[in-house]
Design a protein around this nucleic acid. Structure first.
Length: 565
RNA sequence: CGGGAUGUAGCGCAGCCUGGUAAGCGCGCCUGCUUCGGGAGUAGGAGGUCGUGGGUUCAAAUCCCACCAUCCCGACCA
């Protein structure tokens, strides 16, 4: 393509409200435009990248025998009622009515639809296993979209579904899918971790996530640097670091703390470490109001709390509810003398002489001791691990890292086939439910994630397999225009995706745009050509320049591309 | 859904507090000349319902109210 006629839309400035590098660079390089909250248009250069990612995904899906389908973006409510997700999916499911008053949804995922489809088409084990996938728009009405296309409401996703006659077969496909994912993310040059995960609203048993490492990521994982233990933060097991104190249990004592309401303030006011403070949080549950007691330096894991209590739903109680229950403002709540059922974290039970709220205004207690000063209803791990905790397997220290979820594998089992009565005849001639798996990749999230891991001060550094173009030819002098044209045509003939920057702009602009957009290789024709009759090939990633004779340019570029892969 | 901001030219912003010759700057865009190896210089030019709707006032981008939209933090979530 000739850049003089190609729609590129690079800019010098970006809104100061954007935070993520990938978001900034995608706007600056003119890959995407924001349309509405969490909704984006892809411009030609950005769509090229997206298509590169799609090609990789398709290739790897086809390699493991998955076939592509296209399911509708709009689904009737009936299917969702049958799986009970009409009720359970929540506000993220965007519902609407057609002119006849019938209810529909914008698809956030397609388990129901694919299960219904396969139910209608497959009636014998002889057609199994079956693996279908699609690359389709999804819509989830997120409360707060953020980070550009990393967390948008409308997004492109690859979702695959497998149907098997037994567990063993399903697990085999799961493994194949896992290998395919590893190849896909490697080809995208992503540094990632495969971690055990929760299955969330999709449902099912075993589940793994592919987390691309990034300090800006929304997901947290724990990793043991010694034995390699890996898990999502909310799923992670850990063994608590023991306070090896031989402290004596002291008598409880009041201490005035006028206006000191937060853990941070309390810590500074009394000169106590936050790990010596207790916080008591109230939750509304279907089992009544409960109080969760944890150390000041810890965070409650609501999922774990929910499981321990055996509640279906829990929600942090508002300040009004707390005041009604305890008669006191948030800030001076403590476990001593509370009527509510107390769920106490294990690490609290192991500690001594804590500082806690007294349930009286402007007053805290020193030397609060669990068991003596308050009685737990339940004791268990109800918190997220912290960096002080130890690996549950080997006892080594754990590190907490951030990342972006780019892929998710679920073993669904019979969850949806049961709900939708999707059965086949097995070898014994009996009806059996399909054993299902489902496997997602956040396609539209991938380009942004790749940028998060591949950029520098000048812009994006695309890995060769996802770059919008492989090489750009830049004449820097009027006398080299014809030669540039010649090289451009030669590169095109060699089957390369090549741009010719024939725009009437200064050389600096050409270099800057090329770097910003992240074209992997530049062929520069200027002084070196005029003096030495050689073209320069500059590598975007490492800045290295090689001087090459004209007829050697295509060959050299091909070598560099092969090497880069 | 709680908290905090913002909405002024295609893009990025100032002006608002203290109402009145302030519709202003930078980038980009158009024209001429000069430039041309890392976002050129110069001279001229086009371009704005000041988010929307009410209100106050002789007078509103500016003050008040409501609404809409967007962004950030949190909670939630694949």
């Amino acid at each position: 393509m000739r850049l003089s006629r190609y729609p590129i839309f690079t800019t010098k400035e970006i809104p100061r409200t954007t935070e993520l590098i990938s978001h900034q660079l995608m706007l600056k390089a003119g890959l995407i435009r924001n349309v509405s909250s969490g909704i984006y248009s892809y411009l030609p250069m950005g769509y090229r990248v997206l298509n590169k990612v799609i090609s990789i995904v398709k290739e790897e899906m086809n390699k493991i025998g998955a076939e592509q389908v296209l399911l509708p973006f709009i689904q009737p409510a009936d299917l969702w009622k049958r799986s009970n997700r009409w009720k359970n999916y929540g506000e993220e499911l965007l519902r609407f009515q057609d002119r006849k008053g019938g209810w529909f949804v914008l698809s956030p995922t397609h388990e129901e639809l694919i299960t219904q489809l396969v139910k209608e088409l497959v009636t014998s084990y002889k057609r199994l296993p079956l693996v279908l996938y699609q690359i389709q728009i999804k819509f989830r009405d997120e409360m707060r979209p953020r980070g550009g296309v990393i967390r948008s409401r409308e997004f492109l996703m690859k979702d695959a579904y497998s149907f098997s006659q037994n567990e063993k077969e399903m697990k085999e496909i799961y493994q194949q899918m896992r290998s395919a994912y590893e190849r896909i993310f490697s080809r995208c040059h992503l540094k990632y971790k495969l971690v055990e995960a929760e299955s969330g609203s999709i449902g099912g048993n075993l589940s793994h996530e592919f987390i691309a490492l990034s300090p800006m990521g929304e997901d947290k994982i724990v990793e043991c640097d010694n034995c390699g233990y890996l898990a999502k933060l909310e799923m992670a097991n850990y063994s608590s670091a023991k306070d090896n104190d031989n402290e004596e249990i002291k008598p409880i004592k009041e201490v005035p703390t006028p206006g000191v309401k937060t853990i941070k303030d309390l810590s500074e006011f009394l000169h106590y470490r936050t790990s010596k403070l207790l916080k008591t949080l109230f939750y509304q549950t279907d089992k009544g109001l409960i109080g969760a007691v944890i150390r000041g330096d810890h965070q409650v894991n609501e999922e774990k709390l929910k499981k321990l209590v055996g509640a279906k739903k829990i929600q942090l109680a508002g300040e009004d509810a707390v005041k009604k229950e305890t008669g006191i403002d948030v800030g001076f709540i403590g476990p001593v003398g509370i009527n509510s059922q107390l769920i106490v974290d294990t690490t609290v039970m192991e500690g001594k002489n804590f500082v806690a709220g007294s349930n009286q205004k402007d007053l805290h207690f020193l030397n609060v001791n669990p068991g003596r000063d308050f009685q737990p209803w339940l004791v268990g791990n109800i918190r997220f691990p912290s960096s002080e905790d130890r690996c549950p397997r080997c006892g080594h220290s754990l590190s907490i890292r951030r990342g972006i979820e780019v892929g998710h594998l679920f073993q669904l089992g019979k969850l949806y086939s049961h709900a939708l009565k999707a059965r086949f005849l097995n070898k014994e001639g009996r009806e059996d439910y399909f054993i299902m798996g489902c496997y997602g990749i956040g396609i539209s999230r991938l380009p942004a994630t790749i940028i998060e891991q591949n950029y520098d001060g000048d812009g994006i550094i695309w890995p060769i397999e996802v770059a919008p173009f492989e090489v750009v030819v830049i004449p820097t002098n009027e006398k080299t225009v014809d030669t540039s044209e010649e090289i451009y045509l030669n590169l095109q003939r060699a089957g390369l995706e090549v741009l010719l920057d024939d725009r009437d702009v200064s050389v600096g602009v050409k270099f800057k745009d090329s770097d910003l957009i992240g074209i992997p290789f530049k062929v520069i024709l200027g002084n070196t050509w005029l003096k030495e009759k050689k073209a320069e090939i500059k590598n975007r990633k490492n800045g290295k320049i090689e001087k090459v004779k004209l007829d050697q340019v295509p060959k050299k570029i091909m070598e560099l591309i092969t090497y880069a892969k």
